[in-house]
Design a protein around this nucleic acid. Structure first.
Lengths: 230, 230
DNA sequence: TTGAAATTGTGATCTAGATCACATTCGGAT
DNA sequence: ATCCGAATGTGATCTAGATCACAATTTCAA
């Protein structure tokens, strides 16, 4: 730590202004983070960022400098295999969730990595990473929050893994449709068969056929660029 | 909890003796945990446990009461699908590593959805869960250790996931053999084809045939219950 | 030594999906 | 209205592995 210079240090630490919108967002979506002083700190250093549907949020070739608290919309996290241009959906992050994989996101091995895009128009509070660590010691609720979030990411990953390992495409497709519907808070999914096929690392034809089957069973109805869960 | 008997409580809290073996094991395998007072606490509450090869350490559905710090051998972590009795290997934990799945299990106080067995004769330091949490606030190095361990488990999980999602059985088999060889610090693997097939969620016949191919390519040599990497 | 069980080898099907090759339909720009 | 490209439908192969059905081999215990 350097010797504090009167005029500078107080500004950074004390008089930096809080963003009142952030406080209310945290109160609304992250009720677990109930310590007022923590909420204030978040409001001081957090930055609100918005993304339009389809926008790429992070390409993890580079280091991650902030952890996102999702307050609106939904963020799609996908694993990519560059060689054959393949990919699989890992999970969606919805409002109230975060991805605190602070170290790992960035430094996977190089030939394949993780991409996150806005599945919907989305809004996040970006927390610079150094605070993520500081707060771990200062605020028990933050610590719990981070641990809990690590845990649920882990759980989702394992769930995804065993869908892929154990289940057939029809079942995976159905689960996928449910997830997307949930992410959008709507039973209407705007998407082409091709996009779905990509997310599931399957062929477009296979997906089209399986969707037809679901339609015949009365589980969904199909239109161009649109699937309605019934 | 029973009513404390005078002579017992002080022993447990203050004069409990440290296990000197634990201190040296921590120093050797967990250099990151460098705070002396942390090492002492570990030596006080940690319990050394040994498992013979093949022994089940924690089964699917059981409650986790301690977090293992692996100091010898290797622990196999497997995900099970009860219905069809299928399973997949998630990863091995080697000396110097710990299982963050167990963190989440105990912190969330829920049943395990994985099974862990000793892949080799193994030794762990078992840390009762309540300390795991206490230390998070007390010891920065412990906190970092836990976070880092979550991270690396996560990475392994993602790696496993994309092997399953993107790769064919021959490649998965080869990676598997390398992992096991590494886990045993030996290029000789004692195992039946059936066991391998289980770990990869494949059929025994497929594995036998692929192993034959690898042998023909000169990558391995095969004997009963034994595979030698060349 | 002689079973008997565990392990491995091998061929014959069978199946989910991939891949290929198109035909059809829809919807928006001109 | 019409044209073009994107989205979807559909059939014909092809392939990795699963599954089934055994045979052959090894190990070990009685």
């Amino acid at each position: 730590m350097s010797i504090p210079i009167k005029t500078v240090v107080p500004r950074q630490i004390d008089t930096i202004k809080m963003n009142p919108e952030i406080i209310s967002l945290v109160k609304e979506y992250f009720t677990e983070l109930s310590e007022p002083s923590l909420q204030e700190e978040i409001a001081k250093v957090g930055v609100i960022r918005e993304f339009k549907e389809g926008e790429i949020i992070m390409n993890f070739g580079s280091f991650v400098t902030a952890v996102p608290l999702v307050v609106k919309g939904s963020i799609k996290v996908v694993r990519e295999e560059e060689e054959d241009n393949k990919e699989v959906l890992l999970y969606f992050l919805n409002a109230g969730e975060t991805c605190s994989m602070s170290f790992s996101c960035c430094m996977m091995d190089k030939r394949s990595d993780i991409r996150t895009t806005a599945e919907d128009d989305s809004k996040i509070i970006a927390i610079p990473i150094k605070h993520v660590n500081d707060w771990m010691s200062k605020y028990p609720s933050w610590r719990n929050f981070v641990m809990r979030s690590y845990d649920s990411r882990m759980q989702e990953l394992v769930k995804t893994l065993d869908s892929i390992a154990f289940k057939k495409m029809d079942e995976r497709l159905w689960e996928y449709l449910l997830k997307r519907s949930k992410a959008h808070h709507s039973n209407i999914i705007h998407s082409t068969h091709q996009t779905i096929a990509n997310d599931l690392n399957a062929s477009r034809e296979a997906i089209s056929r399986l969707l037809k089957q679901l339609e015949k069973k009365g589980a969904i109805s199909l239109e161009r660029n649109k699937i309605v869960l019934l």
